[in-house]
Design a protein around this nucleic acid. Structure first.
Lengths: 195, 195
DNA sequence: GCTCTTGCCTAACACCTTTAGGCAAATGAG
DNA sequence: CTCATTTGCCTAAAGGTGTTAGGCAAGAGC
């Protein structure tokens, strides 16, 4: 009987592709076994559990996304960097919705600390180097950028922006433009807080 | 044999509570049957399917959240309205994480159109009445607000903001403050787009 | 009290997850 | 090259969830 040549890496990759096709939460050990034309139990020599598979896909996606963002960011600063970062993020989610969902999987602290998630955090902070923000404003800004990008991408891929005639791309540019203006003006602003 | 008195409404409510306890995607017809001390198959007289249950919980959550937002918004305008809206949203997600997740369930267009989702959209637009924005800026702003609020709440409840010493509440106020400033200045801005 | 509807039940099947134990293919030592 | 060992995929089996079909008894209406 010919062996299928399964490895955790191949399974993870196939799982990521499957996620893009059918959705991350439809990724199942059984479905993966079918893809490799192999019995389900066979995968358990390579994966600890179904959750283990999901975590591997998440780490894979985080890493791949971090690579893309890093490439997009190279040599850019200021609003260029902001747009490059945001577009890398959004493009990834549109090309690979399943992997993007995987990257949002909640990891336990130890796993998260060892993941490419830290690169994401570093790169977000790197963008802000072009705007002279000091702590704690920098942290606030990091959180805001993360929120906007994740929120926009999440709502957009969920089809939330398809009810109006106004193009989502237009709104995206408007949002990036607004964020850039906001960050440029932020250090000078002195308005009192609202809550 | 004493009857349990099941109805779709009671099941939906119990499902919503269960979602808050164990997470929306752990809400299962089986778990619900256990809660009512009833056999699983019995629920199928009241629910079409597991997905039907999830949709009911989503609609329930959307409605409840819309009520809260409406109450928070009453009599407020401008930055007050913005903060009230945002806080209602965030507070709901923190008090009822499972229901909040349910409210984000992707609905088919017909169901969505008949849901409280339209009230949410109307209320978001209502906030912008305090800032004189015209189309298409208004739509862009609606999308941005939705993105920021959803993104922030989503990242915060996922524990994404607990790695730094800086308090999340502080960042939240900073974000609201920034959005207010942004919207107030937006109509006057003439910066060219970046992408 | 009798009939009819309705609510919850048992039975059964399909699919996913996971563990235990077996056989055969690859690997490597002599 | 042969034999022993390791390793990869298999069968078997048990437990959980989703769903349908058909039965019996509780409650409602007359």
């Amino acid at each position: 009987m010919v062996r299928a040549g399964l490895t955790p890496e191949r399974l993870t990759r196939a799982g990521a592709e499957l996620a893009d096709e059918v959705g991350f939460d439809q990724v199942t050990v059984s479905a993966l076994a079918r893809q490799f034309d192999v019995k389900v139990a066979s995968l358990y020599s390579h994966l600890k559990s179904s959750q283990d598979l999901r975590i591997r896909i998440a780490l894979f996606a985080l890493d791949e996304l971090a690579d893309r963002v890093a490439a997009a960011l190279a040599g850019r600063a200021g609003r260029d960097a902001l747009a490059a970062f945001a577009n890398a993020y959004r493009d990834y989610a549109r090309e690979h919705p399943g992997r993007y969902a995987a990257a949002r999987l909640r990891l336990d602290p130890a796993t998260a600390a060892a993941s490419a998630g830290v690169r994401h955090a570093q790169m977000t902070r790197a963008i802000l180097r072009g705007y002279d923000l000091t702590e704690p404003d920098q942290t606030h800004a990091v959180r805001m950028l993360g929120s906007v990008f994740h929120g926009y991408v999440s709502l957009e891929t969920a089809g939330g922006f398809s009810h109006t005639a106004i193009d989502s791309q237009e709104s995206w540019v408007w949002v990036l433009d607004s964020l850039d203006a906001l960050l440029r003006n932020r250090h000078a602003r002195t308005t009192p807080p609202i809550t």
